[in-house]
Amino acid sequence: MLLSLTIDLAPDEIGAEGFRHFSDRLRAIDAIAPDLVIFGGERDTALIPGRLEGLVNLPWAAGLVTSAAVVAVLPALHGIPFHVARALSAIDFVSAGRAGWAPVCANHEVIDRAYGQQYAISDAEAPAKHDDFLRATQALWDSWDQDALIIDKASGEYLDSAKVRRVDYRGPYFSTMGSLNAARPPQGYPLLVRDMNDLSADSELPADVVLLGAETITEAEDAIVRLRAAPGTANAAILLKVTAGRSLDLPFEVEGADGMHLIGHPDAATVAAARARLPARTQPGDTARARFGMAPPINPFTQKALV
């Protein structure tokens, strides 16, 4: 069983003292060694982008949260694939393959207003744009083969030109030519997290980790059967959401759950209590994908998946 949680900056964690408090909180969580830490906010039980911008926070946070996979919640309907692909490549390098992303549609009405009127979109249309955003971003990662870099000083060969390409992705919402000006991330694709409380829940694209909110054992087990039957999530790690302060029992009672995701601003004591019931099964140094049992993604341009 895997242990995961959401962390957001608390409203009072500002100023020099608040910053120290936030840093100490991350160190305390790190000492408990959860498997996954998602940096983002919550609305009801759904993930939303947090008060720290996900991609800029993550490299700093990865210096304090040193063993878990670290995940940024991103606004899928507002992000720009080229920037996101490039940043996640760099983050995956500087976190030694521990990076992940959770592109969400939740809270888009609020974010639409801040990005401008051309971003306004209906809930009905949002999932299609979410999927296009994911495809465009992944296509840019595919513009480099995993083994493109050579870096041989003596011969002067830096990379193999035949292993970098323009992908010329054209989707209904996003177009991007590539090549990306960043190498394919060490994991191939960073760990992809999907929230079943999001508008993107019905996406058929593959996800590596699924967060599932359920009130009862039956509800959870029915949902897991459906997820296992869908090609995109058949192999995903399914983590049941548990709100801090409530019983931690549900994930242990549900057939087929892979772990627990703590929401509701869990403090270190809550995370430690959960860890006590979920012995760590992974090793520090594992990449995020390895930790969640995900094979390296296949690059469609080469049909190869090298690590």
Partner: peptide, 25 residues
């Protein structure tokens, strides 16, 4: 990317990784 008309140079180093990422680290 660094490519000229689709061909990425084989003897030039990769551009700087994403600036925000490096500065945040």
């Amino acid at each position: 990317g660094r490519d000229a008309a689709g061909r990425t140079p084989g003897r030039l180093a990769i551009p700087t990784l994403d600036p925000f990422t490096l500065l945040s680290a």
